[in-house]
């Protein structure tokens, strides 16, 4: 394995959880709901996936349980904000704090255990292509799902009727409601999809990235995922690009340090975030384009008036 290949492989591992969580949140925000609880859902997914994998001995069952945990946790958010019409920002933040605490409690007896790792699946023929074969076609299942989800979500949002309805709700829930589209039901489903994606991102952390459970192991990735959605101006393919750019800068700075470049490590550590800000500034310069892409009813509660 060459150094370049090794670096690229590490980048895909670092980018996958960001990509999954961001793509889930993108669908949620496209439906007009702002769920700031991504971090909490990731960490819940991570702990439940790890626990399930330890108890059943199967990493696949672990991943499934992790997804289910994220989904269930997001249902709590959905119930509070959609049915009880609680403030989305406050509820999302509460979800994150609750998730970090609750996961620590659930995971207490699993600290320090050696985890089950999700194995790689080599796709026949394709995986033997030189250079990219090992990188793209000899990976774990969650990686394949993350890439597939980008194209799947892109197709769903822009090529299907349901996707159109979801975007309509996100842009103007009042009008969508008047057209007879079920706003609350669609939003419930979107939030649950986001939860499942975040849960799977968590499962990737505790089953692939570092197969173990440690408290707060999401380490802020949920917040980065939220930033990526804005960074990508709510477009799935740009989320893909953003997640990999972020992963590349994160890993690249570690290599730069190991090579002994004389750049302060604090600056290098801040580089991924700096890159995000720069891109955000560039994107926001075109105000019309930003407005066109931003879901207009993002973060607003919906109460049917008739």
């Amino acid at each position: 394995m060459t150094l370049a290949e090794a670096i690229l492989l590490t980048i895909t591992t670092a980018a996958t959880p960001l990509l999954l969580a961001a793509i889930g949140e993108l669908v949620v925000e496209r439906s007009g709901v702002l769920n700031l609880g991504v971090e909490g859902m990731i960490v819940m997914g991570a702990v439940v996936a790890f626990a399930a994998a330890q108890l059943t001995g199967s990493a696949y069952l672990g991943a499934l349980f992790g997804m289910a945990a994220g989904c269930l946790f997001s249902l709590l958010f959905a119930f509070l904000t959609l049915t009880l019409v609680a403030n989305q920002v406050a509820t999302g933040l509460a979800l994150t704090i609750l998730g970090l605490g609750l996961s620590g409690m659930i995971g207490e007896s699993f600290v320090g255990q050696r985890g089950v790792q999700l194995e790689e699946i080599a796709i026949p023929v394709l995986s033997s292509i030189p250079l990219i074969g090992n990188l793209l076609f000899n990976q774990d299942l969650i990686f394949y799902i993350s890439i597939f989800s980008v194209f799947g979500v892109s197709w769903f949002l822009f090529k299907t009727r349901l996707g159109l309805q979801l975007r309509a709700i996100g842009d103007s829930h009042g009008s969508a409601h008047a057209l007879g589209i079920s706003v609350i039901k669609t939003r419930y489903l979107a939030v649950m999809f986001g939860g499942a994606c975040a849960g799977l991102a968590g499962a990737q952390l505790s089953l692939v990235y570092t197969p173990q459970w440690v408290e707060n192991m999401s380490a802020g990735r949920g917040w980065i995922a939220l930033a990526l959605v804005v960074f990508a101006s709510w477009r799935p393919l740009r989320v893909l690009a953003g997640a990999y750019l972020f992963g590349a800068v994160t890993i690249g700075q570690l290599h730069a340090q190991a090579l002994g470049f004389g750049i302060p490590s604090q600056f290098l550590s801040a580089l991924p975030y700096l890159a995000t800000i720069v891109v955000l500034v560039i994107i926001s310069r075109n105000r019309r384009l930003t407005l066109m892409n931003t879901p207009a009813s993002l973060g607003q509660s919906f109460v049917p008036d008739r």
Partner: peptide
Amino acid sequence: FDAGKEADAAKALIDQ
């Protein structure tokens, strides 16, 4: 304390 980042650092060092 950031298990993922520490693991990435270890990978980078081993790769080098």
